[in-house]
Amino acid sequence: MSNSFYREIINDHNLRPAHKHELDGANLTLRGVNPSCGDDITLKLLVEDDVVKDGAYTGDGCAISQASADMMLDLVIGKTKDEALDLYRLFDRMIKNEATEEEIEKLEEAGSLIDVSHMPARVKCAVLGWRTMSNMLEGE
């Protein structure tokens, strides 16, 4: 499975992330950690008028955790808080293998992580960025 899993789309987001950088002016910051494997990211968002105006992350981790966070930011920047939280819930359902193909299309590139639903050991890597975002937005 992994032979095909680490395909271009995940490798590309891992090696050339668009959103892995500092974000001056962010008004929300939260660290997300997977203690057992050492994925460790800090997610920063700029949220104004209930809209995610910008976002970025820094940190270390496996290709899945890093690529997933990057794809998530591609998707949620420009969306409202509620839309972003809906996407988180959809992503979470996809990873649990509970989402339809039609729904998964809404996740755009992040939909390529569907294979993780068959890789129990990597679920926490894939959802790290998403879980961190949802904790942030819901805690606001």
């Binding site: 499975m1 032979n3 680490y6 270390d60 496996c62 290709a63």
Partner: peptide, 13 residues
């Protein structure tokens, strides 16, 4: 450049 979890995953395949 390769995270240990990705190492183990690919070796597993």
């Amino acid at each position: 450049g390769v995270h240990p979890h990705d190492i183990a995953e690919i070796l597993s395949s």
